[in-house]
Design a binder for these strands. Structure first.
Lengths: 356, 356
DNA sequence: CGTAAACATGTTTACGTAAACATCGTTCGG
DNA sequence: CCGAACGATGTTTACGTAAACATGTTTACG
């Protein structure tokens, strides 16, 4: 090992063996002929004479100096890092929110500490939060999307601000989400406006998901506001297969002319069931989804769906967290982001008695 | 603010204002009546008398003590953290690999530092790597899935081991990926074995993606090995829409009876085009995808596809990185993981002259 | 021309942890 | 029954950084 090479500093140890160590401020200071504090000033944009700065920068470059973030964090008490706690990464929406947060965080000089829980029990969440607190984060975003179960039983870290992305409003917590009810209303009203006598619903996992529960509730409310009684609900989880199963039942029922699905995957399954049973979409049956995944425009037929604005949700969540991390008082409560209806080819006017 | 409450230590500052600070070892030591080193020993499972240990644990609980990871990292030089560098989070495969890595990392006591790049230019990658090096990671996994362009021009951190997840073998780097060629061969042979005279291909972005290029190459090679010449390639990117565009051309060509698509999204677009043009799948045209996304079993018709074993890829990548982080010598080179053909309803025997 | 402000840099110290070393009492084998 | 080995704990120190304070050197203005 050659001494003085570009990428490090050779250190003599008691064993007599030389070891490669990352260059520290002291090393840079020595090479540049200044004090380590001056190196620190250069590193942090303090007041330094131009000539000195150049000399220090040259020394940094030569040694491949990188500030030690652990030391910096220890000294300053800030980690420039945001913890993101998610359930699985199987959920389209969660991932798109994560993506946005990752971009925002990078732009703001924060890194992302990601934790995904396979099994979202309350205990695991609390454990993960405690892990995050112990790990080096200045703030936490919990993407609870679709998991109730916990409510006020989570032990939130006391010293680290956190923001929830969830449809439920914990009145003492800062949270953000897409407005599930508004989105569902958009879908149901679209179908009713097309003349359909009623709208059937294939739900998500309403037991464990606030989003699923709210979409169902809003479907019910919207029907009622038009003087209609909601037909029986079908469904179970977010998967396309559960949509297919529900779709088989719906396809067998001649009365069904309009279906609102809790998400696009479910809609995909419903579409398949309709095709299998020879019911034409949208001629015989109209189908609406929720999410606007990347693929739904290429379903057969292209799916009318409710586009969630995940970008805005993610940006809002990060912006709120940043404020809180900077010590500003952020008001608790749920911020709702509006959705948009995207009309494609899976919906059409009610065919009336003609079709039967 | 009450002094001595469970969650912290009140500190008098020169300003006269009391501020809440996280409890340190010194605080715990004071309360337990031991030295801070004894607290350290309890924290790290050192030799401590049972009675003392209990006293210290009680003090820890009372103060809500959490070890300061920055200090620990500074002292030990290890961060218990793995950096994961990805391009977008829009790619099914990348996300599933990330998910596996997140689980493995958590199990091994590592946290994940996630960086996703919108724009995957070489410069950005190098910049991100440098950022990761400066941030607190013991090792790095690069999920380059589908991005060539960089090759040997990336400046890999010298002091931090890294593992690539990529189809290309950088002979001086540790890397892992699904065997694209084996997977494509599986697909093409399946179609040929069904009696189709040849197989058409809708490719991914072969310019920027090794995976896409390898799938195309293998398709070509497999045809040649049966004495066939590859028909013209169509395609462009990974999206369903590009599949649709290619599908429109294929649907108009009566000679097309079998199509191998570079991924499931493309296959979805091709299916839609076939439906629109009244070509029945699989009766008239057989279609095969690649990936086995969660939805492809519910496409219409359910898609025959090549299942990539992302779980094994992710596990292998993390296992290799762990070895390297522990200082073991890990051999450079590409590890390939086999894929599996999943036969569903989008493929059938060649209809022969009958169909035309 | 003198003195205060502004500038440029150096010195000391503390952040919280854990390795290395030091100390003291106890047990055990010959 | 004495010394060695061991067990339990305390003391010192260093990791790399940056705030706070100290020092010296210029500039500016009455």
């Amino acid at each position: 090992m050659e001494p003085g090479r570009a990428e490090g500093v050779t250190v003599s140890q008691s064993s007599g063996v030389d070891r490669l160590r990352a260059a520290s401020m002291a090393d840079v200071a020595l090479l540049a002929g200044v004090s380590s504090q001056t190196v620190s000033r250069v590193s942090n944009g303090g007041i330094v004479a131009e000539k000195t700065r150049e000399r220090v920068l040259a020394a940094m470059a030569e040694l491949g100096y990188r500030p030690n973030s652990a030391a910096r964090a220890l000294k300053s008490g800030r980690f420039q890092s945001v913890g993101v706690l998610m359930f699985t990464l199987h959920n389209t929406g969660s991932i798109r929110i994560l993506d946005t947060i990752a971009v925002e965080a990078a732009a703001g000089g924060y890194s992302i500490d990601l934790i995904s829980l396979g099994d979202p029990t309350t205990g695991h969440i609390t454990e993960a939060l405690s892990r995050l607190e112990q790990e080096a984060v200045d703030g936490i975003i919990l993407i609870l999307e679709a998991h109730e179960l916990l409510e006020h039983s989570i032990a939130f870290p006391a010293r680290v601000p956190s923001v929830l992305v969830d449809s439920q409003s914990y009145d003492d917590r800062i949270s953000v989400n897409a407005d599930q009810k508004q989105g569902a209303r958009l879908a149901v009203e679209h179908l009713l406006d097309l003349g359909h006598p009623t709208v059937w619903h294939v739900s998500g996992p309403t037991e464990t998901s606030n989003a699923a529960a709210e979409r169902e509730q809003s479907w019910r409310d919207t029907l009622r506001s038009r003087g209609l009684v909601a037909p029986p609900v079908l469904g179970g989880n977010w998967g396309a297969e559960s949509g297919y199963k529900a779709g088989v039942e719906l396809a067998a029922n001649d009365e069904v002319s309009a279906v609102f699905c809790a998400n696009d995957q479910i809609a995909l399954g419903v579409l398949r069931a309709m095709h299998e049973h020879g019911r034409r979409v949208p001629d015989d049956v109209s189908v609406v989804g929720f999410d606007d995944t990347a693929e739904s425009s290429q379903y057969w037929p292209p799916l009318t769906t409710v586009r969630q604005n995940f970008k805005v949700v993610g940006e809002t969540a990060f912006a709120l967290l940043r404020e809180a991390m900077l010590g500003e008082a952020v008001e608790a409560g749920l911020r709702l982001v509006d959705n948009e209806l995207v009309v494609r080819s899976s919906t059409a006017a009610y065919p009336g008695a003609r079709a039967r």
